[in-house]
Design a protein around this nucleic acid. Sequence first.
DNA 1: AATGTCTGCAACCGCGCTTGT
DNA 2: GACAAGCGCGGTTGCAGACAT
Length: 265
Amino acid sequence: MVVMIMGSLGGEKGWKKGPWTHEEDKLLTEYVTLHGEGRWSSVAKFTGLNRSGKSCRLRWVNYLRPGLKKGHLTPMEEGIIIELHAILGNKWSTIARYLPGRTDNEIKNYWRTHFKKKEDSKHNKKKLKRRRSKVIMEDTNKSNNHNNNNKSSYDDETKENYYDDDHHNNNNNMGLMYPNNNNNPTMLLEHQESFPLMHQDYFLSSPSWPDTTTTAEDYYDAFLFSLWDFDVPLGFEEHVNHLTKYVLPNQATFGDGGNNPCKNT
DNA sequence: AATGTCTGCAACCGCGCTTGT
DNA sequence: GACAAGCGCGGTTGCAGACAT
């Protein structure tokens, strides 16, 4: 009752902006718990929050929603982002559907900070290299110390490959990693070795792993291939299940007509 | 140690689409 | 069909902390 009165004082204009407080988060969480997601414009009315519906939705989706992953993206997630961005472009929300617990905003920010900078000037290249060598030094030290954080040697390699403009220049002058021109899926193969079998661990641990004769490579190939079927389920785990159910059993069809983007031979 | 620059990320903005009236 | 409100998306901004000079 009180909050409704408070909410009415908020009015249509003069919404509060800027960082959210713990108290605001609590109010928003309580509201969504009671009423579910949606009806964002009613949040102010029912909670007394002097925030626009848009702001509430954004806060919930990007920060408060249960199941969100915190912390750095894993090498596997990086690989998925790279691949999907090559295919979909800046469809961040679509890419996010393949990464449970990650938001479009997070992925967008990640892409901008880690990959977009490749387009920067030579001046920035020098700084980048300097910074990169420092990162590599640090990571080398870490691995020498056998630390148990989730940074793998693969991560280092990937970071080096994709931060390094020279690497790209030496590889087909592709500029961007996976130009989407002509929708040519074979582009995906060009750098496949740069993130080898990144999905292997996930696939191998999948309860729906089809059989012992299917290799991780097969699964990886199937994953890439199935990215071109935009009607498949969108969640990553769902995606794996989809592969198990529909794609892998039909691998014989991959080579048909040279349409298989995943086989090098 | 002080200052300038860069990075990462949360949040905002504008636009377009969808839905309800 | 026209309009308004709600919603979602991609682009952009602002700021705090990290890093370099």
